Simulated assay, not measured.
Amino acid sequence: MKTALLTLGLGATLAGALALAAPADAQPAYPSRPITLVVPFPPGGATDALGRVIAQKLGQQLGQTIVVENRAGAGTAIGAGYVAKAAPDGYTLLVTSGTTFTVNPAIQSKLPYDPVQSFEPIGIAGRTGLALLANPQVPVKDLKELIAYVKARGAERPAYGSYGAGTTAHFVGEAFLAAAGIQMTHVPYKGSSPAMTDLIGGQIPFSIDTVAAALPQSKQGKVRVLAISAPGRSAFLPDVPTFAEQGYPSVAMDTWLMFAAPRGLSADVKNRLEAALRNVVEAPDVRKSLEAQGFEPAFSDSAAGEALIRKELPLMRELAQRANIKLD
């Protein structure tokens, strides 16, 4: 009788333990609720437009709604800081440019995130180079002629514009000046549009802008493209040589569209997101959307994204120090 009671007691205890453990073990499969994709730029820009296109397709891949939330300000630091502090559960993601990971840390000493430790890269959806542009009335057709043009003016220091101080365009300009051993005056604008307007109008002779911004103006003959900053030629401007091809290999920067999550994402969730993003980027309609914004579709996985950040960050910091580029 005692044996029977003991067996019954053990059985009841085991059943109770299993009942208590079941809810903890039976976690719902990811994703079981809507995902938030933070865009650290205002609505209407290239990153916002592409983020929304990819979010819709990514949601279809994952079988869940993805809500796009704009958290602009401080050169992407506000939105990036918000994501960095979110739970690493895959329900808060970030889509942003290289500015967040390599430019901001080089020019700002107080950021609400660490570019390496705060984020888990998911993948890069596309990349685009920057273009060195000239007003067509300026008698310059390549970098060699530009250098001669600048040197002939001595202390006059011709101006070059960019879409903002401390931006990737500013970094490309300073990298070229350092490599060429010439001096020009940087004129930062509040965005690409006013810089392009002044370049076309002749208020400034040169400017650096994205390939996407340069392409329509170049086709209409309103600007002349002298060089591309990417490691290779742009598919959109295949006849324009890179800085490296013209003798300046140190000026090999581009900007990229990266998806990331807070650091600490589980391997299962990370792999699920990476695979879904790869499928989305390789879809023909998404590729067309990327190309329409001047990005060359080229998926890079999470490991490649992390390696890119670790490679470019010290280079940007060195350039910022040499050119005295800082925002605080």
Rank of each mutant, 00 (worst) to 15 (best):
M258Q: 10
R263Q: 13
E312L: 15
N271R: 14
N324Q: 11
S289I: 02
G305N: 08
A292L: 11
L277Y: 05
A320I: 06
R278S: 04
I325R: 05
A303W: 07
T255D: 15
A276M: 05
I325Q: 05
Y248K: 06
W256F: 12
A267I: 09
A298R: 14
F259D: 00
A260H: 00
A276P: 03
R310Y: 11
Y248E: 03
G305I: 06
D268H: 11
P249K: 13
A260E: 04
P262Q: 01
I325F: 01
T255C: 00
A267H: 08
A298T: 08
D328L: 01
L308Q: 15
G305Y: 06
S266P: 00
L315Q: 15
A307P: 02
A267V: 11
R278H: 10
S266G: 13
A304V: 14
S302T: 10
L315S: 13
D328S: 05
T255Q: 07
D328G: 13
A260P: 01
G264Y: 03
Q321P: 01
A276K: 05
K288M: 04
V281R: 02
A260S: 13
G305M: 02
L308H: 14
R317W: 06
A303G: 02
P284G: 05
S266E: 10
R272V: 04
D254W: 11
Q293D: 08
R272L: 08
W256Q: 02
G264I: 02
A323F: 05
N271A: 15
S300G: 11
W256K: 02
L257Y: 03
V286D: 04
E282I: 01
L319V: 10
A320E: 08
V280D: 07
A323D: 09
P249E: 10
R272W: 02
L277C: 07
L313T: 11
R263L: 01
P297C: 09
L290T: 09
A303V: 13
L265D: 05
V286T: 14
R317G: 15
R272P: 02
Q321I: 03
L265F: 05
R278L: 06
L308A: 15
D328F: 01
S250F: 02
L290F: 07
D301A: 09
A292F: 07
W256D: 02
P314S: 11
L313I: 11
E282K: 12
D285W: 00
G305T: 03
R272E: 07
P262Y: 01
F295A: 08
P284W: 03
A307L: 08
S289A: 15
M253V: 11
S250H: 07
A323T: 10
L257W: 01
L257A: 03
R263D: 04
V280T: 12
F259R: 01
L319N: 04
Q293L: 09
G294D: 03
A298W: 12
A307Q: 14
T255N: 13
L313P: 12
E296T: 15
V280M: 11
R287T: 01
V280C: 09
S289Q: 14
R272K: 15
F259V: 00
